[in-house]
Each structure stands twice: as C-alpha cells, then as structure tokens.
C-alpha cells in the first residue's frame, strides 16, 4: 500500500471518529445543562465555555459567548478548523485519495454523510437543529463503523483505519475527561457539589456514551473515582482508554511483521505505552489528574508521530 494512501486512511479514521465525539459532546452537555441540579451547571456561559474548551484546543475565554455563534462555529462553520463540518470534509477528502482501496459501500456512506453535513440548513440548525444534527452525525458515524468493519477486507487497509480510529478515540475520551474535569472543578461548592460527587461526572459518562454500562457495572452513582476508572482503565468498556490502546496494539501487529519489534519501531512504542497504562491504579491517577492527562496526550501524540515516520512517510 502507498505510504500516502496509508496516511489518508489513518486520518480518515481519525476524522470520522473525531466528528462523532464532538457532536456527542455538544449534544450531551447542552441538554444536560438545561435541567442541571445547580445554577452554575445550568448557566449558558458555563456550558458554552465547556464546549469551546473541548472542541478548540483547551482555551477558555473571559468574553461572554453568543450561543448561536458558538454552536454554529463548532458544528457548521467551515471556516473554523475545529468544526464538525470541517472534520467531515477532511474525512471525505482522505477517503477520496484512498478511494480505490476502500469498498464502494464505505465510500458511498462517507459521501452521503458529507452531503448531509454540507447541506444541513444553517438557520434551522441555529434555531432548533442541534439535537437532530448531532444525533444524525452520531448515527452516520455508527453506520461508517459498521461499513468499515463489515465491508473491508481485514487486512492492512482495515488495520490502518482502526489505528486511526482508536488513537483518536483514546485522545477524544481524554479530551472529554479533561474538559469535564475542569467543569467539575469550577462547579464544586455550588449547592453542595463536591468534586468527588459532581453532577459533571454523570454528564461525562454520557458524553462518552458509557453511562448505562457504568451504572450496570458499579451499581452506584458515579463519583470521580469510579467514572475515571471506568473510562480509563476498564478493559471491557469499549470507550475506555485502555481498550483503545489494546486495539491499537492488536492492529499494529498486522502491519509489523516482527515477532520482536525493533526498539525504534511503532510496534515497540505502542507496546510500551500500553504496558505503562495497563497496571496503573486509579487512586494514583486521580491524585494528579492534570499531569496524567498531559502525559497520556503526549504518549498518544508520539505514537501518531512514530507511525507517521515509519509508515506514512512519502
């Protein structure tokens, strides 16, 4: 497979995955905030800040934000690099370059997704389309996941897409944790919310589509500890960071033929990073979440760079 096309497949996977997490973040936060138990969590400014923080590289502004503008920017403003529409465009552009390698079915679904987002009426979105739009984005991405799994040969092409998907998923889950953690820190104290038992943890789980399963697993109201444990370390949770790392490990083995990967290879680095998080304990993570977040984002980033240099160099 061409190195350039491998790069396209990798990023196609990443952008597809990314668009869904952002859509879900918008959806869950917006609607959870409407009837949140405390005033701050209900505040428009609070939730809009949180959305921008998550979507646009962890920046919080002091300015007062305009709801329609923020929602439009994150969802449909193609001039914003962090918008969903932009990610979907990029996903399709990457799919275009790899068009001869992916199935007609997958391409057709990506293309439909693209036209759906491109033609979504902006006015309608600003006034009443948020729920509909974000749900449809998530649905479309589900369809794409199905087409990726169900219509492609599970060979190198599939492995590279899945590397992109899983690295992105781990990254986005961490970003969501980071954003909600900041929210929880800000919200603590109002109406008796403590950091450990913040309402924001429930929202966080919902943002990761993991609330129901988490309740089933722990049978108790989410706390900071259980939420983080579930989303980071639970190997059975399909959205957990460790699960994504396990997937990355599995898929790199399709590309790397070596039984004992070389020290400077991607396969070696991925194995090393996985091992590092495999035996972490949650109390340790929780005690300094900020450092943990920074470290794991760095680790994921260096995996991406390593792959780039080893396989996608053209």
């Amino acid at each position: 497979m061409l190195a350039r096309v491998a790069n396209n497949l990798f990023w196609m996977g990443r952008y597809i995955e990314r668009s869904e997490h952002i859509a879900r973040y918008l959806n869950v936060n917006y609607f959870a905030s409407l009837d949140a138990p405390n005033e701050l969590s209900q505040s428009r400014q609070f939730v809009l800040q949180s959305m921008l923080f998550m979507a646009d590289d962890f920046i919080r502004t002091e300015d007062s934000l305009e709801e329609e503008e923020v929602l439009y920017d994150i969802a449909l403003n193609s001039e914003k690099t962090y918008s969903i529409i932009n990610y979907v465009k990029l996903a399709r552009e990457n799919a275009n370059s790899a068009r001869d390698l992916i199935s007609t079915e997958l391409y057709e679904s990506i293309n439909k997704f693209y036209h759906f987002v491109l033609n979504y009426p902006v006015d309608n979105f600003k006034k009443r389309g948020l729920y509909d739009f974000t749900v449809q984005v998530a649905e479309n991405v589900s369809i794409l996941r199905g087409k990726i799994r169900g219509t492609l040969l599970h060979d190198e092409v599939y492995a590279i897409i899945m590397l992109g998907v899983n690295i992105e998923r781990a990254t986005q889950i961490i970003r969501i944790i980071n954003a909600k953690f900041k929210d929880a820190v800000i919200a603590q104290g109002s109406y008796g919310d403590t950091l450990k038992n913040s309402y924001e943890w429930t929202t966080l789980l919902k943002c990761a589509e993991s609330y129901d399963m988490m309740r089933r697993f722990y049978r108790q109201t989410p706390t900071s500890l259980t939420t983080l444990e579930f989303l980071i370390l639970n190997t059975d949770c399909p959205r957990s960071v460790i699960n994504s790392l396990n997937q990355v490990c599995k898929h790199i083995m399709v590309l790397s033929q070596d039984k004992h990967p070389k020290k400077n290879s991607s396969a070696f680095l991925i194995g090393k990073v996985r091992a590092k998080y495999q035996f972490k304990i949650i109390e340790e993570i929780e005690s300094d979440l900020e450092t943990f977040i920074q470290n794991i984002l760095d680790d994921l980033n260096s995996i991406g760079l390593k792959l780039q240099n080893e396989y996608f160099h053209y």
Partner: peptide, 13 residues
C-alpha cells in the same frame, strides 16, 4: 485502479 486491482498513485508517490 480499483477495477484492475492496481495502485492509484500521484507523482509524489
């Protein structure tokens, strides 16, 4: 390219 099962390349490849 797809129908022949061969690579579709660009100059930079």
């Amino acid at each position: 390219a797809k129908a022949m099962g061969v690579e579709l390349v660009e100059g930079r490849d």
